[in-house]
Simulated scan of single mutants.
Amino acid sequence: MAQHDRRQEALQRIQIGLTGVAGVILLVGLASIVIDKARLGDAAAPPPAVPTLSANAVAPKEPLVELGVQPAADQAQVVPDLVPDPNLTQPIDNDQPKP
């Protein structure tokens, strides 16, 4: 009886292993098909439309300001004055000691 149990267990392990290998092959095949279809779809799609300026349109003078990346010249940034540390006894940017 022990011989029969071993053989059955070995066959079950082989079946599980072959099922796993078949599953991996199936997943790799499906992934390959999906990737190939995506590449074909990208090649068939027309390039994106680029907006162009008409002959009557005026080119922007400050494109970064219009995009909001850079502040406009009339919007001067005000930096508040910095208050020095009251515990500071000598300037930290001067290496020479005070006399």
Rank of each mutant, 00 (worst) to 15 (best):
L64M: 11
V78R: 09
K37A: 00
H4G: 00
V69I: 15
P97E: 06
A43F: 15
A44E: 14
A73K: 11
P80K: 15
Q75C: 08
V24M: 10
L40C: 12
D81Y: 09
P46A: 11
P86Y: 01
A76K: 14
L67M: 15
K37V: 00
G20H: 07
D85S: 02
A43P: 05
L67C: 12
Q75E: 15
K61S: 14
V69S: 02
I35T: 15
N56W: 00
R39I: 05
I25T: 14
N56Y: 04
G41K: 12
A31R: 04
E66K: 11
I92S: 11
V21M: 09
D74R: 04
P80W: 10
P48D: 06
R7N: 09
A44L: 14
R39L: 04
V58N: 13
P84C: 04
A44H: 10
I25K: 09
Q12Y: 03
L27E: 00
D93C: 03
L67S: 13
L64R: 04
V65R: 02
P48E: 04
R7D: 03
N56H: 08
I35A: 13
V83Q: 05
P86G: 02
N56G: 10
A76N: 06
V78Q: 14
V34P: 04
Q15W: 01
G17D: 13
Q77G: 14
L27F: 03
P60C: 00
A73Y: 03
G29D: 08
Q8M: 12
P63R: 12
A31V: 13
Q12L: 08
Q96A: 07
A59S: 12
N87G: 06
Q96D: 09
G23L: 03
A57M: 10
V69L: 15
A31N: 06
P71K: 05
R6F: 08
P84I: 08
P63E: 10
K61N: 15
R39F: 03
A45V: 11
I25C: 14
T89P: 10
I14W: 11
A55N: 12
L67N: 14
Q75F: 04
L67W: 10
L11G: 07
A38M: 02
D5S: 06
I25V: 12
Q8F: 05
Q12D: 07
D36P: 05
K61Q: 15
A76E: 12
I16T: 14
